[in-house]
Design a protein around this nucleic acid. Structure first.
Length: 588
RNA sequence: GCCCCGGUAGCUCAGCUGGAUAGAGCGUCCCCCUCCUAAGGGGAAGGCCAGAGGUUCGAAUCCUCUCCGGGGCGCCA
């Protein structure tokens, strides 16, 4: 609908320039907006005011010329010039009738577009270290990333969803070592667990499995394990040095092969749990990209070489530094530590370099807001290795924290307090639908208060309930219809569509017509909350209509037309909820 | 100290790529079931858009400064 109007104005402008009446450059796109106030028609165009200055003309005079050249359209009922020079357009009722027809013809595809033109977009999200189960903070990134990806797909982009698995590096070694130490305890050794180790119950579970499968095969006397290890923090030492030494000892005593077995048992268990958790949450990936494979393929080294070649690497205090300050970062960054170990940043340079190499037109990273300081250095590396254009292909979307509330009380989310922290627990408490919906109800850069009681409530305080109820109500009406021995025919409904002349019906049709614009806008701006808010409005229009009018009336023409309208509404609600990863129940 | 995000109705938030009288839900008050789910609907009250400057035909929206919240600034990942 909007695109149609843009074309009309475009054509008028074209006429004016080619006939020499208008002598100035035309803007790339013409802004057509929905009016806030119905007395201004359905759409407003500010083009006359925008062009007034370059065309050295008065806005209203220019508007008159444009209006005079607007091509005829069966869908436009009225054109008026108003205020400082707005061109107000009123659509014919037939335009809205056409929308209802289109909803039924397109079905699940209504709202999808081709504006993405098949451009390849990679969306990388969650990517939590597989050192423990996902917590509620990851949940927001999961819901947000998955929805952005689905919206982009609906807008015609070719989307590649990816999880970057940090299955290499020090944190994973700490996990492996933690598992081994717990295993030793289960095998009967007595030891003091390191302050910096992973203390969650899941580590015990993994250790138990390991012990069940391998018996005492990996057992070594605690005295040997701790011999010569520097003191831990509680004993007045450095917890980092302590755990690093234990990792070294584990590798030494177990040997490469056995260490890998212990390590992989931890990794596979946790990663399997994460995959299952996400899958149950309706979050699926095209690819799980392994950091270990990235490192082993030599891509990280190649990236460092590339930086060396272009003279962006220098050595200082035994470490290798990337001169990121040349590209606007606030300080230079270490890529290889003085002990020869590559930093996480080094892997990330290799990873992002490879991302661009894979030919994506755009690359989106969804990160927690606490990583914001990390953005300039990754962009710096991409610029250093390629050019500014490469770095510009990367969009980093930062997601702020969610704070959980229950009974008006803020929940402590520390692991220690034992109060609920994992995504799985959240899903079990409020359900997948509410979790998905509430996570994306707010802009990602907005700090979010997640009210658990609200998410569970069955009333219109709860926007999700309210939307799902609208869907269920339509289904209920159809069930009632069958009970009355009536039947419904969309074809007949569409033939009688002009009978829908109640204000509530026109309102509802207008809202339905906005859906494609909402999906497109939400996709391009990476803002799922726009869709969530829209669905609330649509549900509101429906509930209002439901209260004001009876659908199952005796007159079959009106009845068919009304049922056609409400089933179209049901379709749009289902489509919208589908994009948010939420179900559309037939009864509640 | 530097950087990022936020500050809009009593509460939670939309609106922010500048547009016409600033919106929604909750809460408060009033009203609506002989009728398809009242698990719903309608209406009212409620605002110095944190503050001060600037840009312009026009600013909640853009720029600068100040104040108040939250987060981040490792040879951690």
């Amino acid at each position: 609908m909007k695109h149609h109007l843009q074309e009309l104005v475009q054509s008028a402008l074209h006429d004016l320039t080619s006939s020499g009446v208008l002598e100035c450059a035309l803007p790339e796109s013409i802004t057509i907006e929905r009016t806030r106030d119905k007395s201004h028609g359905d759409f407003a165009c500010n083009i006359a005011m925008v062009l007034a200055k370059p065309a050295r003309s008065k806005p209203r005079e220019l508007a008159e010329k444009i209006v005079a050249h607007l091509p005829e359209s069966e869908h436009v009922a009225k054109v008026a010039i108003a205020g400082p020079g707005f061109i107000n357009l009123t659509m014919a009722e037939s335009a809205y009738h056409a929308v209802v027809r289109e909803v039924h013809e397109s079905g699940e595809a209504y709202g999808r577009s081709t504006i993405g033109a098949g451009k390849r977009v990679q969306v990388e999200f969650v990517s939590a270290n597989p050192t423990g189960p996902l917590h509620v903070g990851h949940g927001r990134g999961a819901a947000y990333g998955a929805t952005v990806a689905d919206l982009l797909a609906a807008a015609g982009f070719e989307v590649h969803r990816e999880y970057y698995v940090n299955d290499a590096g020090r944190q994973m070694d700490i996990l492996g070592t933690s598992v081994w130490l717990r295993y030793l305890e289960l095998a009967g050794e007595t030891l003091t667990f390191p302050a910096n180790g992973y203390k969650g119950d899941y580590v015990w579970d993994i250790a138990a499995t390991l012990h069940r499968e391998h018996g005492d095969a990996f057992r070594h006397p605690a005295a040997d394990v701790y011999h010569g290890i520097p003191a831990d923090e509680p004993a007045g030492g450095d917890k980092e040095a302590h755990i690093d030494a234990l990792i070294m000892r584990a590798k030494q005593l177990l040997g490469t092969e056995d260490y890998r077995k212990v390590f992989d048992r931890g990794l596979d268990t946790i990663l399997g749990d994460i995959r299952q958790d996400l899958e149950e949450f309706g979050v699926v990936y095209e690819q799980w990209y392994s950091e270990r494979e990235l490192v082993e393929s030599g891509k990280v080294d190649a990236a460092i070489e590339q930086l060396k070649k272009s003279d962006h690497i220098y050595e200082e205090k035994g470490a290798l530094w990337f001169r990121s300050t040349d590209f606007g970062d606030e300080k230079d960054r270490v890529v290889v530590r003085d002990n020869g170990v590559k930093t996480y940043f080094a892997s990330d340079i290799g990873y992002h370099w490879h991302k661009l190499d894979r030919g994506f037109d755009r690359v989106i990273d969804v990160w927690g807001a606490d990583h914001h300081g990390y953005v300039p250095r990754v962009k710096a590396a991409l610029t250093a290795m390629g050019d500014k254009e490469d770095a510009d292909k990367l969009d980093v979307l930062l997601v702020q924290f969610a704070i959980l509330y229950r009974g008006g009380e803020r929940l402590q989310m520390s692991t220690r307090s034992g109060s609920f922290v994992t995504l799985r627990e959240l899903r079990e408490e409020v359900g997948n639908d509410a979790a998905r919906f509430f996570y994306v109800m707010r802009k990602c850069e907005q700090h979010m208060d997640f009210d658990l009681d609200l998410a569970k409530s069955q009333s219109n305080d709860n926007p999700l309930f309210y939307i799902q109820y609208a869907h269920a109500r339509v289904c209920s009406v159809l069930r009632q219809m069958e009970e009355k021995g009536l039947s419904h025919d969309n074809g007949a409904g569409l033939k009688n569509i002009a009978l829908l002349n109640e204000t509530h019906e026109q309102e509802l049709m207008r809202t339905l017509s906005r859906y494609p614009e909402i999906v497109e806008g939400a996709a391009l701006s990476h803002e799922p909350h726009q869709l969530a808010h829209y669905l609330r409005e649509l549900a509101n229009d429906f509930h209002t209509y439901y209260n004001a009018h009876q659908f199952l009336v005796d007159e079959s023409g009106v009845r068919d037309a009304r049922l056609t309208l409400i089933t179209a509404t049901r379709q749009v609600i289902a489509n919208g909820l589908g994009l948010l990863g939420v179900s559309a129940p037939e009864s509640m």
